[in-house]
């Protein structure tokens, strides 16, 4: 079979999609808001589903979260992974029901749980994909998170493409310089073994190279006052000076409250439960 340059479902594509998720899709719904409000928005959606067993309410919350995701321009890879999870989850539910001779009530009970998890997952996708990680880390700092966490977010954001490229280079080196797989074995068992062992071997140079890199980075952090900033509040205040609540942030909070209340009201009007009370 002739090989060709593929723009989807190739290693390059996955890499690009991850990068797009991390960088280019920013600027969706929540980009313009104060990150603390967005974190609050997320917290509300992360908590609300656990306060009810009413499937109608959960479905309404799910719909709201799904709309938010749509407005946040989440990339196909992340959505695909989510949908894949959802589909397998559903299949799993039915399998469980069938396997243990349960009736529809079993499924309904588990659907409740899946819906709850789904709302949280969608809300996190919407909030964290459209929010610039830098702002997020500032929000964390302003909520008194340890400085290492905020540094970690910022540094991870900066390093991601570089270490992914480096790892790709190393894996390519393995592909080119080791012997290609001659036989695939029964059920192609050799293929995952080959991939797995290449993955493990590739971490050997990766660990050494990253260690070398880290040394310079930490030296630079030291000379550029990272430790100093951990001990004095001045740097923190400067960094957070731009965080200000504005009208639109209040509007977001208001809309969120209205939507959540709406969901619970609809639930009251047309309740559906996994079991009868």
């Amino acid at each position: 079979m002739a090989r060709r340059q593929r723009d989807v479902l190739s290693v390059e594509w996955v890499k690009l999609e991850l990068l797009r998720t991390a960088y280019a899709t920013r600027g969706g719904l929540f980009a313009g808001f104060d990150p603390r409000v967005v974190v609050g928005w997320y917290a509300v959606f992360a908590v609300a589903p656990w306060l009810t067993h009413n499937i109608t309410v959960l479905a309404a919350l799910f719909a709201v979260a799904a709309v938010a995701v749509a407005l946040c321009r989440v990339g196909p890879l992340v959505l695909g992974l989510f949908a894949f999870g959802l589909v397998t989850e559903t299949a799993y539910l039915f399998a469980v029901a069938w396997f243990f001779d349960g009736d529809l009530h079993t499924v309904a009970a588990l659907v409740t749980l899946s819906l709850k998890l789904g709302v949280v997952a969608l809300a996190s996708m919407a909030a964290f994909v459209s929010l610039d990680p830098e702002k997020l880390s500032d929000a964390l700092v302003s909520m008194k998170a340890p400085p290492l966490l905020s540094f970690g977010v910022s540094y991870g954001y900066r390093m991601l493409p570089i270490i992914m490229d480096e790892f790709h280079t190393i894996v390519d080196g393995h592909r080119l310089r080791s012997a290609p797989l001659e036989r695939r074995g029964i059920l192609a068992w050799r293929v995952p073994v080959h991939i797995g062992s290449t993955l493990v071997r590739s971490f050997y140079p990766m660990m050494l190279n990253t260690a070398k890199r880290t040394r310079t980075t930490v030296e630079a952090l030291e000379t550029r006052g990272f430790t100093f900033a951990g001990e004095s509040a001045k740097g923190r205040d400067i960094r957070l000076a731009y965080l200000r609540l504005r009208m639109r942030d209040l509007a977001l909070a208001l809309v969120t409250v209205v939507l959540i209340a709406g969901a619970f009201i609809i639930g009251e009007l047309a309740p559906v439960f996994a079991r009868d009370f």
Binding site: E134, R158, L221, R224, A229, G235, I238
Partner: peptide, 18 residues
């Protein structure tokens, strides 16, 4: 370089030192 964008990175030292 430890911050994602150029401006943030250049300002990293001065901001840390307040």
């Amino acid at each position: 370089l430890v911050r994602p964008s150029v401006r943030d990175d250049v300002a990293f030292g001065p901001v840390n030192f307040g």
